[in-house]
Design a protein around this nucleic acid. Structure first.
Lengths: 335, 335
DNA sequence: CTGAAAGCGCTTACAG
DNA sequence: CTGAAAGCGCTTACAG
């Protein structure tokens, strides 16, 4: 491991000069800079992140907290964020809660996150007031995806409007018995999104003069398996729905499967619409509300980089990305 | 940010004692330790990772390199690895190549990885000899998932045998015209797995006295979209296959879709089998060869932790996890 | 059991 | 343009 001292000795200058030369700082002659750079390459010098982190108080690292890495949505947001961070030479420290409330508490309960990283990106979680307090006390930028908190940048879609547009589409087709498959609030994670989508669903119904039917609201846990269970429940009802709005494509696909099991044709007997435009949605010909997932990660990364002074770009504080109704073959007028 | 000095002053001991107390080292009286711990909690003290990293040369961080975070397989391996690392107090630094060969070169071309982390986990990539040399020169443990290199721990499945078992199943059903949908070798990433699966496919055919048909080998790029394109190509052949072995479930699902488009029934007109037992496979009733994905991540993490002296557990050096043929409804005898 | 002090490898005013 | 030196916040022999 060659250190800055080795390099300085090799070139015959001080470590201060090496440091300046390598980081492109002014007050180094071009000739010296070149000799330093050349020697650095030759000796395979890589500065110690610990040492420069200690000296500057900056680690060039961003912590990203996700409820579940394995879900397509979060993996894709991470992909987008990583891309932008990497461009600016930032590393990504991944914290996966894996749906474990204890992990969440451990992570947010201490100053760990803000101590270890220059900024924190929280995906798909609405931090509790206590968590907000903790994060704030770290004094580092925090960015949110899928939620928002006063004073912090955020990027999200209008979940409420997205849900409305899906339900209004079903209403326009003539459906009145419309079910909602979502996630329940008691879940330790993912609280904002399900609530807003459910509200949009209810509001669209009420605006259309349709009385919401409590039995039509079912938990699908944001998984295919949960969607399957939810679909079975709905199809088992004495007077079941003619259409289902699922708060995610994965749950919608589960509902599709339940319909097939029950021998109901889609969209003949049952219309189904989701949210995401997940890769698989295309394969199921699933009608859905598309959102730009990687872009959410990219934007969030840009927001915190701006706060870190890493870019001159003006990045809006609160970004609401547009969604788009994508009609395919799983929605049609009721029989 | 309270530092170890603040804490030492608060308790009225030296920083050396604080350091020992907090890390559970011997030679601290129980009473002192308690006072230190209590004060640490009270002041919200979190040690600086940079400082201890600089002092010890250990960062308590493992770098994980993946070709694509967004793919279910890699996201799930990451999940498994993160889980085990977190248990031991290690952080996970994520490097996503996103299929970009330039990113791969930048990452492996410098000592960055081994300088920044105590160990490196490389997923789904076969490091080139040059990359092996670079990584080795870092002198830190390197673990591989889905590939293996002399002297490094690895965890993988027997891709060759997995492919054979799928193809033998098709042969046993009576198929002779069996196609292979895989990934091509020119890809900058993922080289080992596709090759081994293709070899298993070819070998199974030859052993059964079936002459391989070059037109039956198609690139599916390990994506659903690629599988769809591959399926279309195969179904457009004058004398097409009666069965398809896809090297991943996602590609198999693409083939399923191509069959539906072409009005061919599965498994009536075409049998399809994949590899993975991806969550979605269940929903498509897809026959497949199951592998334990999260377990691969967990095992790889344990392997490098063992090399870091973090566990007394004896972890075998080269682990080959079993696979299992899962027969569902997409495979049947030819018409 | 405890503390003083050196050292890890950088960065950054300050002087020249 | 360049260097000497202090300092970042820990850990760890070494002495007591």
């Amino acid at each position: 491991m060659t250190s800055i001292d080795d390099l300085a000795r090799e070139v015959g200058v001080s470590t201060a000069t090496v440091s300046r030369a390598l980081r492109g700082l002014p007050r180094v002659s071009e000739e010296t800079r070149q000799r330093v750079v050349e020697a650095a390459v030759r000796l395979g010098y890589v500065p110690s992140a610990s040492a420069s982190g200690l000296a500057t108080g900056r680690t060039r690292t961003v912590a990203v907290v996700v409820p579940f890495v394995t879900r397509w949505f979060f993996a894709t947001v991470i992909h987008g964020a990583e891309q932008v961070l990497r461009e600016r030479g930032y590393d990504l420290l991944l914290y996966n809660l894996a749906g474990d409330p204890a992990a969440r508490q451990r992570l947010f309960g201490t100053g760990l996150l803000t101590k270890r990283a220059d900024a924190v990106l929280v995906l798909g979680l609405a931090p509790t007031p206590e968590e907000v307090r903790q994060l704030r006390s770290g004094g580092r930028p925090v960015g949110l995806v899928g939620a928002s908190v006063d004073g912090w940048p955020s990027v999200q879609i209008d979940d409420h409007a997205a849900a409305r547009s899906a339900v209004e589409h079903l209403l326009a087709l003539g459906h009145r018995r419309i079910a909602y498959v979502g996630g329940l609030d008691e879940s330790p994670v993912d609280v904002v999104v399900p609530t807003a989508r459910r509200d949009g669903y209810l509001e669209a119904l009420l605006d259309a003069g349709v009385e919401p039917e409590p039995a039509y609201e079912v938990d699908g846990r944001f998984t295919m398996a949960g969607g399957l269970a939810a679909g079975r429940r709905l199809l088992g009802l004495p007077e079941g729905p003619t259409a289902v709005f699922a708060a995610s494509d994965e749950m919608a696909i589960g509902v599709l499967r339940a319909a097939r099991e029950a021998g109901r044709s889609v969209p003949g007997d049952l219309s189904v619409i989701g949210v995401d435009d997940h890769e698989t949605a295309l394969f199921f010909d699933l009608s859905t509300v598309r959102q730009q997932v990687a872009e959410q990660g990219r934007t969030a990364a840009r927001q915190v980089l701006a706060l870190l002074g890493e870019t001159d770009e003006v990045v809006p504080d609160r970004v609401v990305l547009p969604t788009e109704l994508v009609l395919r073959s799983t929605t049609a007028p009721p029989a």
